[in-house]
Design a protein around this nucleic acid. Sequence first.
DNA 1: TATAACAGTGTAATAATATAACAAATATTG
DNA 2: CAATATTTGTTATATTATTACACTGTTATA
Lengths: 134, 134
Amino acid sequence: MPQKHEYLSKNQQIVLSIIEKAKGPLKAYSILYNVQKKGIKAPLQVYRALEKLIEIGKIHKIESKNAFIACKNSDCEISKATAFSICNNCEHVKEIKNTKLSKYLSNFEDNSGMKYKKYNLEFFGLCRDCKLKQ
Amino acid sequence: MPQKHEYLSKNQQIVLSIIEKAKGPLKAYSILYNVQKKGIKAPLQVYRALEKLIEIGKIHKIESKNAFIACKNSDCEISKATAFSICNNCEHVKEIKNTKLSKYLSNFEDNSGMKYKKYNLEFFGLCRDCKLKQ
DNA sequence: TATAACAGTGTAATAATATAACAAATATTG
DNA sequence: CAATATTTGTTATATTATTACACTGTTATA
Ligand SMILES: [Zn+2]
Ligand SMILES: [Zn+2]
Ligand SMILES: [Zn+2]
Ligand SMILES: [Zn+2]
């Protein structure tokens, strides 16, 4: 018997499964093209699923790329505290799992003494492969 | 006599001036509407100016809002290392100037020993005013 | 002063990303 | 069961950003 938030709806499952299978972040319309054979026909159906999946922490949005990636980090507190490394050359994206970093940022106080429950951090550089190839 | 990168072009000046006067981040098309009386007629003219202004560190893009804000932080290393606080309620945005934070992030090494020259950090919470009003 | 390289402009068209509005179906709670 | 909340389907539209092309002016240097 389904209970609140313990399952994903049909469209949410379809969208999540595509994102989890992907090697990197996917854009909304590329997801749409990939799921049209499964009955999802309109952008809104994709965006609604994305919204829900973000809300429950199954995926994250890479803001600088308008793309969506599966969460690989079981303790990232329901999507509220995220950090990524992004390669400027091959566009490879990886979620950073680093307890020190997340503690540092969660406890960070700005000059006015304010703390923040939620953050998103995007690091840019060359990934190991691209650095070697140079 | 104009020399390389020592001045801003006409359109760049117009766009920068609008952004600097604004109280908060501006969206590209809202900038466009504001500068149409000054002869800038097309989105591309705005986007080109924005691109340049970002490149030279005069403005930053708030990725989560697709909006642009003037840099208030003379030592933020030409736009390569940025941090913002964003109010979830009133949408107030403020650039964070905090040497410890920027040093911490610039020196951060991920699990593979990789360092990053560039980052963008967006903190979300309630600003002081909105916290009091609750 | 030619001329090549570069940076900026203007314009039209179009691509890519995201949401509004409405009606209907399905699931959850009590 | 009824009431509430969530999800779906569909059409249309809004918002954000880029491509392509022709042209102008500046800088560097030969
Ligand atoms: Zn995560
Ligand atoms: Zn790479
Ligand atoms: Zn700055
Ligand atoms: Zn506020």
